[in-house]
Design a protein around this nucleic acid. Structure first.
Lengths: 208, 208
DNA sequence: TCGGGATACGTGGACGTCCAAGCAGTTCGG
DNA sequence: CCGAACTGCTTGGACGTCCACGTATCCCGA
């Protein structure tokens, strides 16, 4: 993880602008395209869609009935990488990763601003160890605080701090403006997408 | 990752191949449900869809126009985790991860069975370092071989071995049967999904 | 011809994700 | 009432992904 996959957080001194010997004031730097989600290799962009090409190969090998499925799988992987990349690009300046942002928002939606670690893990649908990881880093940044559970000696409550709320609000505003709202997809496409995935998730036992 | 977002492969406890003495006919072990994609926390399954709940919160906070977008993002992340989990569950017994499987298949589709590392990275759309990683592990398993590029002293060719082809074929057969073919989604849903993502990828500059 | 810039890889580090194991606190049945 | 089974959390590992560097090689223009 996945992957998932891409994340960082530290300082990134050499911005693409200077590495390229870009003389101009970085003023506009016009993101090529609507925020590209991660293209590597210095070579020129591919002339054809690699996934479509793979699908062709699949059929050529006689796996016709599996071709669409594989295309769906690889498409999904790539889509996740692209979107995650865009999200983290926005979050990075705030010292957040998407995982940490999710935990922070989850806590901010709570009445008391606190949740037992296990509960958070269940709601975020990630492994308990991942919650520990995120909580530790958020705590180091002063965005959350750990507190023993009053009624259960085993449990630990993660509680969002005032600063945490502030950062979460700022992050949300920037995400809404920079990634979510910009229509990369039609409203209908988004609905379809979410609907399809909901069935997938239900089938995986995410919820009844 | 992200990543992804999520992945593993090494520490399967009863090293299927060598480690343990014979695993008693673990024959049935009945996968609960249709191959669940990763549910943690011992607590009972959630009573409601956490993503839907989050969307509700989003609206309640006045971010109506961003609610659907956030739902799309989180849905995508979860979908990727679920599918990746299922795929790797099938590949694990073969000593493969999805990343390694992809590289292996890419090579198998080549006439000569070999590609320069950079070319592979471009086609798989992952960072060059990821290719190095996958190639190293596949090489250790004897599934690929590294060879200096005949015409370019900088480049390295990764070449699939006979054993690599055999493992790749076996993996493909099992993936087709165990994950891809089983209709978790309608054929139409799959097409829609792939189509939507294709636009996303095109927008990200994956291909013209 | 020659030197600077571009390209190809590998390495080390940061992160997130998962699993397995270990420790402590809770529950429940005999 | 006590021990076994169960929970909750943390730690240490493995893996994949990306970035920043360093090194070797290639290529092109002065």
């Amino acid at each position: 993880m996945k992957d998932h996959p891409a994340r960082r957080e530290g300082p990134r001194p050499p911005h693409p602008s200077q590495a390229r010997g870009e003389p101009r004031d970085g003023a506009i730097e016009a993101r090529r395209g609507p925020l590209q989600g991660g293209r590597f290799s210095t070579s020129p962009p591919l002339p054809v869609d690699p996934i479509e090409e793979a699908t062709r190969q699949w059929r050529a090998h006689g796996w016709d009935d599996a071709a669409d499925g594989m295309a769906a799988v690889t498409s999904l992987m790539r889509a996740q990488a692209i979107v995650l990349s865009r999200v983290e690009e926005v979050l990075r300046p705030l010292g957040l990763s998407f995982a940490r942002y999710e935990l922070l928002m989850l806590l901010s939606f709570t009445r008391s601003g606190a949740l037992p670690m296990a509960r958070a893990g269940a709601l975020l649908q990630v492994h308990p160890a991942s919650v520990t990881n995120a909580a530790t880093r958020l705590e180091a940044a002063g965005l959350v605080r750990r507190r023993p559970h009053p009624d259960d000696g085993r449990a630990v409550l993660v509680e969002i701090t005032e600063e945490g709320r502030a950062v979460a609000d700022k992050a949300t505003a920037e995400l809404n403006a920079g990634v979510v709202r910009p229509p990369g997809l039609t409203e209908e496409q988004v609905h379809t997408q979410v609907g399809v995935v909901r069935e997938l998730r239900r089938g995986a036992g995410d919820f009844p």
